[in-house]
């Protein structure tokens, strides 16, 4: 069940001992009782294919009764490398990392080197803040068991599934590589000054400005047939540098995305048949939903929080991620 509920209803679910994944405003999450839940800050949600903003309601994913066990842990930048190895043999792990935390950067840059990377399913999101709320705020991740809110550590709920069920993670990426220049970065990182454009090293900021490239469109790398996005955060005039929402990697070749002309058609083409019947959890990227004129025709999405980065094994940008549960046939 994925729904937007008032805090009193969420308290009721916690009181019943339900296992919950929560997303909402900091004031609402901080006020909840201890229980079997994890949560992250965002006031943006995708409900019935429409983006919504709420500081009064919490997005709730109620995990099904067939979940056999739950193990909630916190990981900082020194322990996040254990996140795959700690996962159960048949289960799924949900992760929430506060944006701009050192754990966020460590995970984003090094996840492929972690023990048992990708062997166990890991899905989740980067928490953020209400972009319209005045005052200083920091993104947070909550461990509901002890009610600790962290601005730096990731919170992970490892769940074990029964033997007749298995978790299957998927992504929906509306973007694909365009036909433009091939771009290779000299170093791994969230920021760069230069890039090899078709093999020639030049200032990447100057390249973007000279070519008048729409920086809302992400950089796209081809991971053996799947498109993985890296979104541009800022073209920094003063530092002559370009910053990203996820790291670029020096051993990958990127191209700027091809513009999407009809989001609804593209979404319909990519949405797996029957997904909603087996959907356990999904989230959508805020970059696809903020005020991106002339992109007023915002893409549709899957029910779930709207987030500041998505995780499907790796950190992703401008992507929808989901996990569904597959029922396995009984042994003959």
């Amino acid at each position: 069940m994925n729904v937007l509920l008032p805090p009193e209803d969420v308290r009721g679910l916690i009181g019943q001992g339900q296992k919950l994944l929560l997303a909402g405003d900091e004031e609402l999450l901080s006020d909840l009782p201890a229980g079997c839940w994890i949560g992250g800050t965002t006031p943006y949600f995708m409900i019935e294919q429409h983006p919504q903003h709420s500081r009064e309601k919490i997005h709730v994913t109620v995990l099904p009764d067939f979940v056999q066990s739950v193990d909630i842990r916190q990981y900082d930048e020194t322990s996040i490398h254990r996140v795959y190895a700690d996962a159960p043999a048949n289960g799924i792990s949900f992760i929430i990392i506060p944006a701009k935390a050192s754990t966020h950067y460590t995970f984003a840059l090094h996840a492929p080197n972690f023990e048992s990377f990708a062997v166990r399913p890991l899905i989740g999101w980067i928490s953020g803040v209400d972009l319209k709320k005045p005052g200083f705020q920091l993104p947070k991740a909550y461990n509901g068991m002890n009610k600790v809110a962290s601005e730096n550590a990731a919170v992970v709920m490892h769940i074990t599934l029964p033997n007749d069920k298995v978790a299957d993670i998927g992504i929906i990426n509306l973007f694909s590589q365009g036909s433009g220049d091939q771009i290779v970065f000299p170093d791994d990182g969230f920021k760069t000054r230069s890039a090899y454009i078709n093999g020639r090293l030049q200032n990447y900021r100057d390249y973007l400005l000279d070519k008048n490239i729409d920086t809302w469109l992400p950089l796209v790398a081809d991971y053996h047939g799947i498109s993985i996005n890296t979104s541009i955060r800022e073209v920094n005039e003063r530092q002559e540098a370009v910053e990203f929402y996820a790291p670029v990697f020096s051993n990958l070749s990127y191209k700027h995305a091809r513009p999407v002309t009809n989001y609804n058609n593209r979404f319909e083409q990519l949405m797996p048949t029957g997904l909603e019947q087996h959907l356990l959890f999904a989230c959508n990227c805020i970059l696809n939903h903020r005020d991106h004129e002339p992109y007023l025709e915002a893409p549709p999405g899957i029910p779930g929080p709207i987030t500041f980065g998505e995780i499907a094994y790796l950190l992703l940008n401008q992507t929808m991620v989901y996990v569904r549960i597959i029922d396995l046939p009984s042994p003959a």
Partner: peptide
């Protein structure tokens, strides 16, 4: 299998 594509890509580069 999504994980296989992601891991394949990481291992080939590594």
């Amino acid at each position: 299998f999504l994980a296989a594509r992601i891991l394949q890509s990481a291992l080939v580069r590594s």
